[in-house]
Design a protein around this nucleic acid. Structure first.
Length: 212
DNA sequence: CGAATGATACCCT
DNA sequence: GGGTATCATTCGG
């Protein structure tokens, strides 16, 4: 066994990082890494786009349905994954955080900039001619590129097992200069009050963001 | 621009 | 139990 692989992997943890308001967590996750390890190796990237979902009273959030079989992970421990199917064919990855009153908040991870295992990600996407920056530019593309599916629904993202979230590497601090915010995507059905909230965060000008 | 594609929640019998 | 409207999207024409 090589010594390096026995070293503890850096991780974001549920007692401090995720136990905060979902909007703060969404903002703080920009620059953090999504790490994925399979038998084929490690693939990973830096988060460049997120969206905050507030809890049961947020009409844009699935949590508005209350505690159901589907939404159960959102009502569980912070730092765990909520993975769901949308439009009958695409998976989306969220991490649970505190919503209003510490209830059922979540952060949708919408895009990463591929940094490690890029060819693995390209092969999973089956898009030989896409630029690297577009391989995980969108919530469903991200899941496909990292081989994340609903089997990770409820998965603890703080443990470092197969799929986890890591702080930005040393020497690569959060690029907060370029942090932009605006309305969330595709949530008009929630009504103007909720749809207008600037709960989407992204790195301005970064080519890996889902929509420029 | 529009089709693809299926789980989910909700409102009925 | 069954019918159905509604999607936190992507890709190709």
């Amino acid at each position: 066994m090589c010594a390096a692989s026995a070293e503890p992997q850096p991780r974001l943890d549920s007692s401090s990082f995720f136990a905060r308001d979902t909007v703060e967590v969404a903002r703080s996750l920009i620059g953090a890494w999504v790490m994925r390890e399979t038998a084929d190796g490690v693939s990973a990237g830096a988060i460049v786009e997120t969206e905050a979902y507030g809890g049961p009273e947020d009409l844009a959030s699935h949590a508005r349905a209350g505690l159901t079989r589907r939404t159960a992970p959102m009502f569980g421990p912070v730092g765990h994954a909520y993975v769901y199917l949308v439009y009958g064919m695409h998976e989306c990855l969220n991490v649970v955080a505190y919503g209003e009153g510490r209830a059922a908040g979540a952060v949708l991870i919408r895009a990463i900039e591929p940094r490690h295992g890029v060819e693995l990600m390209r092969a999973r996407r089956d898009r030989a001619h896409d630029p690297d920056a577009r391989l995980a530019a969108g919530p469903a593309r991200l899941c496909q590129a990292l081989a994340v599916d609903r089997s990770f629904d409820g998965h603890d993202l703080t443990v470092g097992d197969r799929l986890w979230l890591a702080p930005p590497p040393l020497g690569e601090p959060q690029p907060l200069d370029e942090l932009a915010s605006g309305p969330r995507i595709g949530v008009d059905y929630a009504g103007a009050g909720w749809a207008a909230r600037p709960w989407r965060f992204w790195l301005a000008g970064n080519p890996a963001v889902s929509r420029p």
